[in-house]
Nucleic acid binder design. Structure first.
Lengths: 84, 84
DNA sequence: TAGATATTTCCCTAAACAGCTAAATATAAA
DNA sequence: TTTATATTTAGCTGTTTAGGGAAATATCTA
């Protein structure tokens, strides 16, 4: 859960996740949406991957990123137990 | 949402929340459960308060903390929209 | 093969953060 | 009113983190 909370504890990463909810995007397309350098976006994507919130697939010279929501099941359950 | 994710992005604070799920506790009782100094626990409690995850009430010389789960509704909804 | 494009890795900086001790504040009890 | 107890505030320190630019890597195209 640590890496998941860490990944979500950043506005830019949460916005990336929301973008990927709409459609898969490659790293460059994602970076275009922010006024942040590509290396920084690449680092954010890596943190999201470590949390299993996104997956990536190389497509030629591009790297396509997809949202993966299965890990959110754990988070959902954790929250629900708090609400009893 | 920022302060909420920030509050949850720490193992100690998540454990405090889980403790308070069982019963209300004062600051000293909470601190006893951890091998961390009281001032540090006090700071964690403050961050949880800022996120509206806990409330506090002065009872004589003690300060009793309670879990407040209403803010989790927002988090739950955010997660659910990601899962579509 | 050489040049262009896409992405990541490396290394740096400034800010945020978790932890500590000591001191301040507030209430209770002697 | 003095002393003890509970909690917070203030100030310090080492670590983590988000951001940037430059360079490395990988693929594509001429």
């Amino acid at each position: 859960m640590n890496s998941l909370f860490k990944a979500l504890n950043d506005e830019t990463r949460r916005e990336i996740v929301e973008l990927l909810k709409e459609k898969d995007m490659n790293a460059g397309e994602i970076a275009e949406r922010f006024q942040i350098s590509k290396p920084s976006i690449s680092h954010h994507l890596d943190i999201l991957k470590q949390a299993n919130l996104v997956t990536s697939e190389k497509k030629g010279q591009f790297v396509e990123y997809s949202l993966s929501t299965s890990i959110l099941e754990d988070l959902l359950n954790w929250i629900l137990t708090l609400k009893k």
